[in-house]
């Protein structure tokens, strides 16, 4: 017995519109939620190292120990006329070779010469690298009283990391302390 020919060819395909209303409902809910938690300004932080309060009045034993430790205490001071670089022993002198001049004077247009400072610090880092200083990764930043905060943050950018000749990011002095002018 032969089968009855299929009726399929006579099927009328009815076009059903896609019901996207549930998806739309979801979107309407999702958008306010995401809008609420959207961050349009990307924030970041800079960590500072500060000794805990009261660490200065340690016992005598600790003091004796502290004296044995070798510390370099590299300091960069921002002044109106440029950067001073130095440590407890003394400060680098500028090109004019007088002690009052900053090591890296400001550029002619009045902005700070961050790139030169970074080159100088890379040089210092290479010199002190293998001499066993405990604080060879840290640096003390100081500034004149009315230097603005933005300059200090900019300085931190330049002294914490640098790019070497191959384009890799290298640590310069990532541990940043803040101090006052001695």
């Amino acid at each position: 017995m032969a089968f009855k020919p299929s009726q399929r060819s006579h099927n009328k395909v009815k076009e059903i519109p896609l019901d996207i209303r549930p998806v739309l409902n979801l979107m309407v809910v999702l958008i306010p939620i995401l809008l609420y938690s959207a961050e349009f300004v990307k924030l970041s932080i800079r960590e500072l190292n500060l000794p805990p309060a009261g660490s200065s009045d340690k016992g005598d034993q600790d003091k004796a120990l502290a004296e044995q430790e070798k510390r370099f205490q590299l300091t960069v001071i921002i002044s109106k006329s440029g950067f001073y670089i130095g440590n407890q022993a003394g400060y680098l002198t500028g090109e004019a070779n007088t002690a009052a001049d900053p090591a890296i004077p400001i550029l002619e247009d009045g902005s700070y010469d961050y790139n030169k400072l970074r080159d100088q610090l890379i040089e210092i880092k290479d010199k002190i690298k293998d001499q066993g200083f405990l604080d060879q990764k840290s640096i003390i930043i100081s500034a004149e009283a009315d230097i603005e905060y933005k300059h200090i943050i900019k300085l931190m950018d330049y002294i914490s990391i640098y790019e070497d000749a191959d384009g890799n990011q290298q640590e310069l002095f990532p541990q940043i302390n803040i101090g006052t002018v001695i």
Partner: peptide, 28 residues
């Protein structure tokens, strides 16, 4: 960004002397 260093240092010093000694500076 225009806060002078003197004031900033005082704030940092005050935070450090009052048990909050892990300081972070917020930037964009």
């Amino acid at each position: 960004e225009n806060v002078p260093f003197q004031l900033l240092f005082k704030v940092i010093y005050t935070c450090g002397s009052s048990e909050y000694n892990k300081l972070r500076l917020l930037t964009i």
